[in-house]
Design a protein around this nucleic acid. Structure first.
Length: 436
RNA sequence: GGCGGCGUAGCUCAGCUGGUCAGAGCGGGGAUCUCAUAAGUCCCAGGUCGGAGGUUCGAGUCCUCCCGCCGCCA
């Protein structure tokens, strides 16, 4: 999946790796030694028919026989079940977790989820959390370091991943910055995980970024319904760049998005028409016979060019903000707006007409200014789209014959006229994006 | 049952602390340039801003109630 979608994790941790086991082991010892975890009794309900455990509020008295209990969801008979479990005292950490949440308006972003978490913490009494299972019923996890008859419950084990990545329990190589999660695992990340960290004397993450889910025709995807969209098939169909573009453009934090091929293809065509086609029409032989990126020094910029420059600079500033806050879809809308301005400008300048006035020096100056300005716009847009459509961005920059800057120079390179031009474009016509 | 949120042009949605807020994009309809991937550009949506009251000189924008969705919790 990562390979097909062109995603390279800087570090991928398996929970079976020795480093991870060492981290979990130490994490548990720390919390337990500080008195946050104690051996207790887990009380619940078990249905033999459903082969499932239920908590107290998932069961109800059987109307036919009120002495017995049944599962609310399935109506199956359940029996009480108790097991020795290690329990984490969530109540004790409630105040500190709340303090962390309130320390910044974006600890949990967007605010819908922040409110959910805060209201959850408002409950007077939070139940203790069961953080282990008997080894006899759960043999494959990491054992409780201080009691080999117990296994650390999987999600606690899994959360410690984030610390393993920072080298825990050795000197940490950084801080927990942003956890990007789906809304289904909000409570684990925004309540339990910070509680564990604070219990261990560590800092919670700077921010938890929560996204919604994809639906199909308004319905959840599920195997039984058979409406599951396979990202591998999709990537094979339109390519990973355009799949990423569509998904990132349409998804909005705080709400679900609906997947459809119609919308997907519309999004792709929109990008092809406004971005790909702008590159083609501005690098064609008729408007740019010498196939060069005009030198800034030879170009006279008028108010019209200055307006485009302002659009470019505003766009890159806005997009940086929106990417940073996690609102990638809104950032992409800004980029599309910028491209529309570019097409509008190109249309107004009519460089194809100017090109025919070979003996008119003023016309040629205007044509070069138009090309330079359009290329700058395309260059900046390519850079801004790098995280979304890396291959397409690279192809556009390649055609414009400019190399992307790295490090701190990258942000500077997002400004209009950072590139001084005066070099040849890569020869040959280009179809950047195939429209659908 | 408790608490959040949502309900704005066919679709997806912007509209922060009340007075150019009645908008954007897409789709659809019309016109037009011809450089380009038949792409681009321009014009067209008269929508009771879910409903009813209230506060105000003035309310999608604040308050109350109601209707319809959805989320979290119980």
């Amino acid at each position: 999946m990562n390979g097909v979608c062109n995603v390279q994790p800087s570090r991928f941790i398996r929970t079976t790796s020795p480093e991870h086991k060492r981290a979990v082991d130490q994490f548990w010892r720390t919390i337990e030694s500080k008195g946050h975890i104690r051996l207790g009794k887990y009380k619940g309900w078990y249905s033999v028919v459903d082969e499932a455990f239920y908590s107290a509020h998932q069961v109800e008295p059987d109307p036919g026989n009120p002495a017995n209990m049944r599962a609310v969801e399935t109506g199956s008979a359940v029996e009480e079940y108790t097991e020795d479990n290690y329990m984490f005292n969530l109540n004790a950490m409630k105040g500190k977790v709340r303090e962390w949440l309130l320390s910044s308006p974006t600890t949990v972003y967007p605010s819908v989820y922040r409110h959910q978490v805060l209201s959850f913490l408002d409950d007077a009494d939070l139940p203790d959390l069961s953080v282990s299972r008997l080894r006899s019923s759960l043999a494959w996890g990491i054992p409780v370091p201080t009691n080999e008859n117990h296994t650390i419950y999987v999600w606690m084990d899994a959360l410690v991943n984030y610390l393993t990545a920072l080298g825990y329990p050795d000197q940490l190589t950084g801080t927990l910055d942003t956890h990007v999660i789906g809304k289904d695992i909000l409570k684990f990340h925004a309540v339990y995980w910070p509680a564990f960290l604070l219990a261990a004397g560590l800092n919670p993450p700077r921010r938890i970024l929560v996204h919604g889910h994809w639906t199909v025709a308004g319905a959840k995807m599920s195997k039984s319904v058979g409406n599951v969209v396979d990202p591998l098939v999709e990537a094979d169909d339109v390519g990973s760049d355009l799949l990423r573009f569509y998904l990132l453009k349409e998804a909005r934090l705080g709400s679900d998005a609906d997947f459809s091929h119609k919308r997907r293809d519309a999004a792709i065509s929109e990008l092809a028409n406004n971005f790909g086609n702008l590159l083609s029409r501005s690098t064609g032989k008729r408007v740019n016979p010498t196939n060069t990126y005009p030198p800034l020094a030879d170009v006279k910029l008028t108010q019209r060019e200055q307006h485009v420059a302002d659009v470019i600079n505003n766009t890159q500033r806005r997009v940086q903000e929106l990417y940073a806050s996690g609102d990638v879809g809104l950032g992409i809308e800004e980029i599309l707006h910028c491209l529309r301005e570019g097409n509008k400008y190109f249309q107004e300048m009519e460089p194809w007409k100017l090109a025919k006035l070979k003996d008119d020096a003023a016309a040629q100056h205007r044509r070069l200014a138009c090309l330079y300005t359009t290329y700058e716009l395309l260059r900046v847009v390519s850079l801004l789209l790098c995280p979304v459509t890396p291959a397409i961005s690279a192809a556009c920059l390649d055609k414009l014959a400019v190399a992307p800057s790295n490090g701190s120079a990258f942000c500077q390179s997002l400004a209009f006229s950072y590139n001084k031009g005066g070099h040849a474009l890569k020869p040959g016509a280009i179809t950047l994006i195939q429209r659908r």
